[in-house]
Write a protein that binds this DNA or RNA. Structure first.
Lengths: 215, 215
DNA sequence: CACTTTCTGGACTTGCGGGTCCATTTTCTG
DNA sequence: CAGAAAATGGACCCGCAAGTCCAGAAAGTG
């Protein structure tokens, strides 16, 4: 079914996805028509349907995937190296800055609520994003635990899940209210929770211990 | 401008809003047409525009307001009396249960992303909901602080903001993945943070049932 | 160089759904 | 009871945007 793509075809497909993403960022999903996309990408109707036989639905899904990749990639390099408090706070600032710049828009969210929410394709995109994001956070948390900076009793996966939820909610609220306060609160308290009171031990009873050195 | 409503008129208007809300819950915003609403509520096109001169936009906004009211009201009575750990956990369970039942739907969220996000009316609805919700949480937190159960240093408003963000994000993730794990994690860790290590002062002690034990 | 496949252009169809209109009936007001 | 205001029914309009079609150009392949 999927016709083999020649290099030229792949390039065109790519151009369409990126153009569509840009258009949607600029005007919102609901306001964006296939014709807008066609105009911006200098393509024809038949090209759109050639590369996305499923029509608008399929195209929007591809755009969503594209945006999802972007979300994680511009939290880098911080997100992959959360091995010191310094790194955590740099990451925190990067996240806030990213959404501050993005303004009252979240293409991904609006995109998702536009598509059939239960569709398998949609599930795949979001599920993958959530899993990957959370996993990276959990790795960072375990790294801090290995350094004895974070209480070992803490369930790293649970903490990562909660932190991620806080970020998502913070962004969602920002979209509605325009204020970053909730996002910042969620991040700051989430991180503070990681630093919470390990007893005085840190100095005296060396942290090292157990084998695993993540990273 | 707004024509006075007779009792009959008010009832019809009400019927329209509730019917529209039901229809949207059942089929999603994008799939719901004015004609569906007309059919379900046994009204005519002209009635729809009679009560909502602004057309679909205005009707959807009214539905959003209706749903927003609902969100808070079915966290009651817990939400208004967060004065003991017992109450906090009952509330926590009520929230989880509410969204478990609701399933992979959040009419309010999809509704919002459908309307012009920056429209003053939309801002008003969400802003009001967020403010009210957060305020109730903050009151509960201060109540616990007054009892010495929660560290006085904690910024109640910030903690409430973070907790609320966690809930929102948890629900959002649930909509995408179908799993309640993130919502539960956010709630459990958020509440645990409130119980965290108050200095020795509180003699109460004992209750070390540890927050996570739920079920 | 034949030939096949993929890529592109753009005119055309079509149905749907939001919105308008006006005639008629019911309810309010004094 | 009479006039006004509000409520209702439903036919009609109409623009737009998704999707179809086919003809022809370009690019691969043996």
């Amino acid at each position: 079914m999927a016709p083999r793509l020649t290099p030229k075809g792949a390039a065109t497909r790519q151009r369409i996805v990126e153009g569509a993403a840009a258009e949607i960022r600029a005007r919102g999903v609901t306001e964006t028509t296939l014709d807008d996309i066609r105009a911006r990408t200098s393509t024809s109707k038949s090209q759109l349907f050639h590369y996305f036989p499923g029509g608008k639905e399929e195209l929007l899904l591809a755009v969503a995937q594209h945006e999802a990749d972007w979300v994680l990639s511009d939290q880098q390099p911080h997100l992959n190296a959360l091995t010191s408090w310094r790194a955590w706070h740099d990451w925190r600032d990067a996240v806030v800055e990213r959404y501050r710049r993005q303004g009252q828009k979240c293409p991904l969210n609006t995109l998702m609520s536009q598509l059939t929410p239960a569709s398998p394709g949609v599930q795949a995109v979001t599920g993958q994003l959530v899993a990957s994001w959370q996993s990276k956070l959990a790795i960072g948390i375990r790294a801090m635990q290995d350094q004895g900076e974070t209480p070992a009793e803490l369930d790293a996966d649970q903490a990562a899940a909660a932190l991620l939820a806080g970020i998502q909610g913070g962004v969602l609220i920002m979209m509605s209210t325009g204020s970053l306060a909730h996002l910042e609160a969620a991040l700051d308290l989430g991180i503070r929770q990681l630093r919470a009171v390990r007893s005085s031990s840190a100095a005296s009873s060396s942290n090292t211990g157990s084998a695993g050195s993540i990273r």
